[in-house]
Design a protein around this nucleic acid. Sequence first.
DNA 1: CATCGCGCTTAAAACGATTCAATAAACCGA
DNA 2: TCGGTTTATTGAATCGTTTTAAGCGCGATG
Lengths: 384, 384
Amino acid sequence: MSPPLQSEPKVPDDAGHRDGGVKRASSKGITVTMRDVAQASGFSPATVSIVLNNAPLAQYIAPATKKKIEEAARKLGYRPNAMARFLRSKRTHSVGVMLIDITDPFCTPILRGIENSLYQASYAPILADAHNQKNRFERALEMLLERHVEALIVVANWTFVDIHVLADFNKRNIPVATIGWDLPGDTVSSVMVDNEAGGRLALEHLHKLGHRKIAFIRGPRMLIDSAPRWKGIQKFASSVGHEIDQTLVTQLPDGLDPSSGFDGGFRLTEELLQKRKKFTALVAFDDLTALGAIRALTKAGIKVPDQCSVAGFDDVALSAMSSPSLTTVRQPLETMGNLAVNVILEGITASQEKRDWTISHQRTSPELVIRESTRAVSLSSSDD
Amino acid sequence: MSPPLQSEPKVPDDAGHRDGGVKRASSKGITVTMRDVAQASGFSPATVSIVLNNAPLAQYIAPATKKKIEEAARKLGYRPNAMARFLRSKRTHSVGVMLIDITDPFCTPILRGIENSLYQASYAPILADAHNQKNRFERALEMLLERHVEALIVVANWTFVDIHVLADFNKRNIPVATIGWDLPGDTVSSVMVDNEAGGRLALEHLHKLGHRKIAFIRGPRMLIDSAPRWKGIQKFASSVGHEIDQTLVTQLPDGLDPSSGFDGGFRLTEELLQKRKKFTALVAFDDLTALGAIRALTKAGIKVPDQCSVAGFDDVALSAMSSPSLTTVRQPLETMGNLAVNVILEGITASQEKRDWTISHQRTSPELVIRESTRAVSLSSSDD
DNA sequence: CATCGCGCTTAAAACGATTCAATAAACCGA
DNA sequence: TCGGTTTATTGAATCGTTTTAAGCGCGATG
């Protein structure tokens, strides 16, 4: 069984091909397989595989052979079939990226960071969006398992999520990293900002500006970020002897919608104003909350920052573009995406070499970004 | 006894097992193959395949058999290996989603729409971000081809992109749809908003509010949206006898960065103000441009909307949250994502049945969203 | 002279599914 | 009893790779 030469693989590279509005497979010969390359170059598929992958055995292959094979591959426009390759080698070179809610502006920079790092490492991201729903989360996980992703990254910013379901991944020895979320116990790796330091930065900034009557909108109870941010605030307050006025402290309700922070910020601020509370500055849980607060203040005729300073947290894209632009505590979101990829990449190679890998908990440093929404306390209302 | 994701047959969940920071494959027997199911149920792999896929032949399979096989599959926690399946059936059930620049807030809702529709149809999105760079665009396309995506969606909002490289997809009979971009000639399907109608809506709104001295910031020349929006504006103007003051018309420079609209809007507005131009309203090319303009106006002490109304285009997420919130022409972005998926899905089934498929050009209707940044012209400055 | 090593290449067995042609059993009318 | 359907199941080929162990020709070694 050795036909002289393949009959099909003539790909006519004439470009002057006009198809007005309809497409049609030009033929089946369009798929160039490794065998074609083998035949064209006069070597066996095995050799072709070894050369093209630069496998260990390639060191024994004669340079002339390599050249011929590479040439043939190029000429035929050979493109390896990822599925076939994966089937044999068990390596899909893809990573599941699960977003709890893609709608959150928080996600976008993270996603870019993830995509970028994965791209550098020649991994492809398979995207899934849980829409904040547990069943979608689980079904998507299922899908990712079927596709044999080599790792999983969960961007779990604003969420509940019973990450118990991640157990299956551990069981299958698939590295998992979460961003913006953490689990008690060393079950999965995580990347988060140092929320406590962030909380501290926010209050420190306002305190330095001379603000003493400061209102707070704390994050929802179920959010993991809420507590440490508040803790950072409290610690700083007591360190400088600042007494937090509890009547100026409010808290966002638990809500699934990421943009609920905006509404919450708006409503809580309105309530404070209605109660005739006096404050010269407000620390919001995150940027959207801050924007909501600003909206309420503006609506009440209070100018930001002239009469009241507002600080946010996160530094999402809109913060720089709102008027006034928002002073905020920046999370290095894109970097966090990169970090998560590093973590799972390390996990993948470890798992490849049948080593154990360590669960790591990265904490990135927040950074104060001073913009227009805060300024030194005005004389008229500085002290009571 | 029915955990969310069916658990392993007999992994003892001994709780006394503390893995302080390390994971380990519990064994190799973890992969349940179809043969395992066959063996467990007492039938052949062929039958198992037929039953589990509900293939045509399944109509001949005895109900009892089906039940046994399904039971066995469930009990073993069988999960089909997507790669193996794809290798044989030639169907990857994945779609390439190429973003020219994920950073653009324009992308997010589209992405959600795409993901959602794909999810419904049991397709997985493989994500790629071109970072506005041609070489990345091409390399990513290459990657998608290797992975044998069944279709491609390109979200090409703010871009140049020589979509010539899409030719390979056509050659391989892979349906392609673009969102926010269109190519001359019927080479690829596209989904876009009706920009002309949108332009009309914007001006009509301001005109109705009594504005007559209106400034315009047109979109960059190379952007496909720019011309039709402007055309819509012009058409409406002439239809009501409104004379556009050319000295109030500016244009954004060609820039790659999606957020360059903000800077551009800011700068151009500042220039207008420096030239002491009088206008009571401003129509910006898009929302970011509008926010930039508002920033400039605010900085110059001009209140929006009291002294100057501003209208945007797109209705990206921040528009509702800025202060003042932005009156804008809404693009149904999420819907556009859905539409694109419909288009390529139709293409896929056609290609499956070896039929030709038609290249379609969907045009969605824009919608005026009236918020706080526009209001009736004030008496003081209505007429010159 | 047999044996070995060396340098280069390949045959053939996986990988885990799908699919088609083939078979076996059961039923049915003549 | 026999051919002919219909029902129910399966053997074996196949998809396009990777990988392991082996093959081959040949000069060197013992």
